[in-house]
Simulated scan of single mutants.
Amino acid sequence: MLVGLLIVLLLVLTLPFFVKPIERNLEPFLFIMGLAATIISGVLTKGLVLHILTKPMMYAITGAVLIFGLLFARFQNEIHKWIEKLLEQIPLQLFIFLVVVVLGLISSMITAIIAALVLAEVINALPLKRKAKINTTIIGCFAIGLGAALTPIGEPLSTIVISKLDEQFFYLLKLLGVFIIPGVIVMGVLGILSAGPSGVAIPSYQWWQPITRGMRHRAELDGESVDLEDETISGVVLRAAKIFLFIMALELLGSGFKPMIDAYIINLDARILYWINMISAVLDNATLAAAEISPSMSGLQIEAILMGLLIAGGMLIPGNIPNIISAGKLKITSSEWAKLGVPLGLSLMVIYFVILFVIL
C-alpha cells in the first residue's frame, strides 16, 4: 500500500508539469489519481462515495463560484469602470496592497471562497501584463489562505480544528494571529513588488502615479491591451463544473492517503510534521488537520502543524480552494503557478520554522 500511494503522490507532483495534456486537464487527472489512491488503500466503497457526494461544502463552493461568476459576468463592465475610477485616484501599487491585505484579513469572515472570487475578478480587471497578474494572484491566494484560518468561518480547516479542540470562536485568532496577520501584510508588500512598473501594461508608468484615461488610451495606441477578457455564461458554468470535479478529486485523494497518514505520520515530532505537511500542496489541508490535530497537543505543536499546512497550501494549485478558483478564472497553468508558488512557499516555510522553533 505504502509504495503504491507514494507512486500516486509522485505522479501528482510531477506529471502536471511535464505532460501538457495533463496540465490542460488537471481536474480529471487529479480525479483519476484520487480514485487510484482510494483503490490502493482499500477505502473505495459505496459508503465513501456517498459520504463525499453528500458533503454540503462541495455544493456550497460550486454554487458560490457559479452564482458569483454569473454576477461578475453580468456586471463586468461596471466593475471595470469602478476599478478604473479608483485607479484615477490612487496609485496602482497602493490599490494592489490594499486588495491583498484586506481580502486576506476579511477572508476569515466572508470565507476564502468569496475572497478568492473577488481577488480573481479584481486582478483580471487590472492593467497588468499576464505574468504580473499571475504573480499577484498567487501572492493574493497566499494571503487569503493564511487569513481565512483566523476564524472557523473562513475555511474547512479552521472549522475542523475548532471542533476537534472544542475551543471558542476566536481561539485560532489568538493562537495564530501573531504569525498570520504580519504574514498577510508582507504578502501585500510582495504584491506591490510583483506588479512593479515593468509589469504594468502602460509604458513609462511610475509607481506613484494614478492611471488616467489618457495613459490608458496611449497604451492602446502602443498596442498594449488593458481590456478585460469577456466572460461568458458557458465559461462560468464550465468553470464551476471543473471546480466541483476538483473538489471531488481532493476528497478522494485525502481519503486515499488517510491510512498512510494515520500509520506513519500523525505521531511524529512537531518539527518533522511541519515539513511533512508540505504535502498539503496537493492534498486537502482540512483532511490533514483532522488527522493530525489532537486536544492533547501543546500550543506550539498545534501552531507548527497549522502553519505548515497553511503555508504549503499556497505552493501549488491543488493546495487550497482559493488557488483552484483563481487559477480557473485566470487560466493559470500548474507550471506557471509553481514558478512563484514553490519558492515563495519554501521561503515562508523556512522563515516560520525559525520563528516557531528557534526564536520562540
Results as ranks from 00 to 15, higher is better:
L5G: 09
L6R: 00
L11P: 05
L11Y: 05
V12D: 09
T14K: 02
I22P: 01
R24C: 00
L26E: 10
E27M: 08
E27S: 04
P28T: 11
F29I: 08
L30F: 14
L30P: 01
L35F: 15
A36N: 06
I39M: 12
G42S: 11
V43L: 08
V43Y: 05
L44G: 11
L44P: 12
L48Q: 08
V49G: 06
H51Q: 13
H51K: 15
L53V: 09
M58R: 04
Y59H: 11
Y59A: 12
G63S: 10
G63W: 11
V65S: 02
I67S: 10
G69Y: 03
L70H: 08
L70R: 09
R74P: 00
N77E: 15
I79S: 06
I79M: 13
I83Y: 04
E84W: 06
L86N: 10
L87R: 09
Q89A: 15
Q89W: 12
I90T: 12
P91L: 12
Q93A: 06
L94F: 14
I96A: 08
I96M: 11
I96S: 07
I106C: 10
S107K: 10
S108C: 14
S108W: 04
I110H: 09
A115P: 01
A115D: 00
A132G: 07
N135S: 13
T137H: 04
A143D: 04
A148V: 08
T151I: 09
E155T: 06
P156V: 13
I160K: 12
L173Q: 02
F179K: 01
P182Q: 09
G191C: 13
G191A: 12
L193C: 04
S198I: 02
P203V: 10
S204Y: 13
P210Y: 14
G214F: 05
M215R: 03
A219W: 09
L221E: 14
D222M: 14
E231N: 10
V236E: 04
A240P: 04
F244P: 01
I247T: 07
M248T: 05
G254Q: 11
P259T: 12
P259W: 08
P259C: 12
M260K: 07
M260H: 07
D262C: 07
I266E: 07
N267P: 00
I272P: 02
M278H: 02
M278F: 03
S280F: 02
S280D: 05
N285R: 02
S294E: 10
S296Y: 08
M297D: 06
Q301G: 12
A304S: 14
G308I: 03
L310N: 06
G314M: 04
G314E: 02
I317H: 09
N320M: 11
I321N: 01
P322H: 07
I324Q: 08
I325W: 05
S326I: 01
G328Y: 04
K329E: 00
S334G: 05
S347N: 08
M349F: 05
I351M: 10
Y352G: 00
V354S: 08
I355E: 11
F357I: 00
V358P: 01
L360M: 09
